[in-house]
Amino acid sequence: MSDEQPTVLCLRFCRIGGGQPDSAAYEGLLALLGAFTPVVEAAPPDGALADVGGSLRYFRQDAAGLASVIRVRALALHGVDCAIGAAENPMLARMAARQAAPGTTFVVPAGGAAGFLADRPAAALDGVGTATARTLCGYGLDSVGRIAAAPLATLQRITGVRAGRDLWERANGVDRTKVLPNAAARSIAAERSFPRDELDPEQHRRALLSLTEELGARLRGEGQVCRSLAVTVRYAGRAGYETLTRSRTLPEPTAHSAALTSLAYRIQDSFGLQRARVRGIALRAEGLHDAERASRQLTFDPVDERARRIEAVSDRLRARFGPQAVKPGRLAA
């Protein structure tokens, strides 16, 4: 067995017939991975990273062989199939997992990052969203290979000093993050109740805005980001009070209040309860993990950047003068 080989696995779980595993099955899958390596990082609701560098010699397997053993046990014990990417670092493993179909393993061999990345579109890199990809394509940098070949100074002029260096490193297959062992990501929640059944949609909107502001501030204060939001509405129905819950995943993990509010509003609109007599609204931020390990989509939107700077200042004022020191004008009345 060669000493130079992939040591990071990225797993995407799916039930036979489609769909994500439920929370109980997901926790069982994390425990299953823990039997192979203690270095398992949860990526709810349907993924995980595992550093198996210390496990390959023990199990006398290469990365692909160990991935096959894990897949067989996941199927037998939990009825869940896996698409697995294997590579030398977490970024490449995640990209490899996106190439793998359920029931298969896609391996990026050690030292093979350049060949794997060269022909991939710019948007395939972590942290490169639609706007950034469009800008890069305008300079002829429409593939990862071309980005990797571009001078670092050129990328920094296009995207900024720090973002340019991050982009250049990723395009060259460099990922400085590590697989950090943790438990299944936790969640935080907040709730607003009305003193009586509330018919006014504007009051429903205000309550939801106050919730996203509260959770956003809590997340930022704790150095966390969330992957998804769940909105629960309690309203008067024909047989008494009923509850309705719906969740959606954010485009990227974030603690930015504006992004949380936008998604929460879309979830609320999907309920179709414009005329409902609402007694309470709850919001839950799910899939929490450290903000320092979250990749943020590069952006050229000055409005978004200004909003984030204002948000940072507001957080400092709240920390000094109390949580009610700064709040949106819509909540001031």
Results as ranks from 00 to 15, higher is better:
124 A>F: 00
308 R>Q: 14
320 R>H: 03
6 P>V: 13
103 G>F: 02
88 E>C: 13
71 R>N: 08
211 L>Q: 04
232 T>K: 14
232 T>F: 07
274 Q>V: 13
215 L>R: 04
182 N>W: 01
118 A>M: 00
41 E>S: 04
120 R>Q: 03
109 P>Y: 06
228 S>E: 08
184 A>R: 11
97 A>C: 14
284 R>Q: 12
160 G>D: 06
104 T>H: 12
152 L>H: 11
244 L>P: 02
134 R>Q: 13
265 Y>D: 15
22 D>F: 11
242 E>Y: 02
211 L>S: 05
46 D>W: 01
64 A>C: 06
205 R>D: 15
216 G>Y: 04
290 D>P: 00
226 C>W: 07
2 S>K: 13
114 A>Y: 09
128 V>Q: 02
130 T>Y: 01
298 L>H: 08
238 R>N: 09
202 E>A: 13
211 L>A: 06
48 A>I: 07
49 L>G: 08
160 G>Q: 07
195 P>N: 11
218 R>A: 03
23 S>K: 10
241 Y>S: 11
292 E>F: 07
292 E>C: 04
205 R>A: 08
60 R>N: 07
289 H>I: 01
138 G>S: 01
84 I>P: 10
275 R>F: 08
122 A>T: 04
303 V>I: 12
4 E>F: 13
76 A>Y: 05
10 C>Q: 13
49 L>I: 07
265 Y>K: 09
193 S>D: 10
312 A>T: 11
147 I>H: 02
207 A>M: 10
294 A>H: 04
209 L>H: 08
286 E>N: 04
164 G>E: 08
262 S>R: 15
96 A>F: 11
152 L>S: 12
48 A>K: 06
250 L>A: 03
248 R>C: 06
60 R>S: 10
76 A>P: 07
